[in-house]
């Protein structure tokens, strides 16, 4: 009994860094922010209780809030699927045996490591600038250069391209998933005369569906919370014409530029609920398309 207790104690000791950190830096601030979301709080004066006024204002009298929701949904709906498709595509290329696969894996994973950084966002500004490589290429093809930063739609797509480019982590997970599909399935399909596409749609996709679910959920959550690229590329404005005003950028502006901490907290809670709902919808839908091998014999 005593050894058992002692062992537990050791266990708690080892997870204590996480537990303490989680309590102090996640749970406590979250509770504080929930309280602030029902107050008018400008950081200087004590918060003043105003009930649901922040939440009501958001949806009734703040057109920029609605705009930021719209921009964020377009960003997620376009960015996540495109990113997953490119991740899967590259993963399948890398799954073919080649001596340089290790090198390629690293090269394609690199953007994910650095993609969220300020340096990359600045590089992106240069790539899409007037004399950037994209516009030079367009001109080379005889097309008109695009003012990527001046056109609200183009500016958002520039951000989406940046999100797609960071497909590395999904790619690695896909790659692991692909490796775990037994070769014998493909061999059996070949014996039966299955084509490449039949193999892809009837073996690869179903076998990979749990991994697709995982990647979809992780990427959706991450993409909803994107901040740095929008901030750097629009120079902190969310412009042009609020075309790149992603949700977290607007939240940041409300909190730290306009000192509406209560409003910003309320925004944070709304997006938490939105992400939770969307995530559970994805999970709910999964029973129609995710195939688990263990259930196969049921």
């Amino acid at each position: 009994m005593q050894t058992h207790m002692k062992q537990n104690l050791w266990g708690y000791l080892f997870i204590s860094p996480f537990i303490i950190g989680f309590l102090a830096f996640t749970i406590v601030p979250m509770i504080a922010s929930l309280y602030f979301s029902f107050t008018s709080y400008n950081l200087f004066n004590p918060p003043e209780w105003i009930g649901f006024a922040n939440y009501i204002e958001m949806f009734t009298s703040d057109p920029r809030y609605i705009q930021s929701l719209k921009v964020t949904f377009i960003y997620v709906l376009a960015g996540v699927p495109l990113q997953l498709v490119s991740a899967l595509f590259v993963a399948m290329l890398l799954n073919t045996a080649s001596r340089a696969v290790g090198l390629y894996r690293t090269v394609y994973y690199l953007p994910s490591l650095i993609g969220g950084s300020v340096a990359v966002a600045i590089m992106w500004r240069n790539i899409f600038g007037d004399e950037g490589i994209i516009n030079l290429a367009l001109q080379g093809l005889g097309l008109d250069p695009v003012r990527w930063f001046g056109n609200p739609t183009a500016a958002l797509w520039m951000l989406i391209f940046l999100a797609i480019w960071q497909f590395g982590s999904s790619m690695l997970i896909f790659l692991a998933g692909l490796k775990s599909i037994p070769q014998s399935y493909y061999e059996a399909a070949s014996v039966d005369g299955g084509s490449y596409f039949q193999k892809f749609f009837h073996i690869t996709l179903p076998m990979l569906s749990p991994v697709i679910l995982f990647n979809t959920v992780m990427q959706t959550i991450g993409t909803f919370m994107t901040f740095v690229p929008a901030y750097v590329i629009s120079k902190g404005t969310g412009g042009p014409l609020d075309g790149t005003l992603l949700y977290s950028l607007y939240l940041f502006k409300q909190g730290f530029e306009f000192f509406h901490m209560g409003y910003a907290s309320a925004m944070a809670w709304v997006i938490l609920v939105v992400i939770a709902v969307i995530t559970s919808l994805i999970f709910y839908s999964s029973k129609f398309w995710v195939h688990y091998e263990s259930e196969g014999g049921r």
């Binding site: 240069n126 600038g129 003012r147 990527w148 930063f149 001046g150 056109n151 500016a155 412009g239 042009p240």
Partner: peptide
């Protein structure tokens, strides 16, 4: 210059 042009300046 139009605003979409000035937006291009780094």
């Amino acid at each position: 210059p139009s605003p979409d042009e000035t937006a291009q300046y780094a």
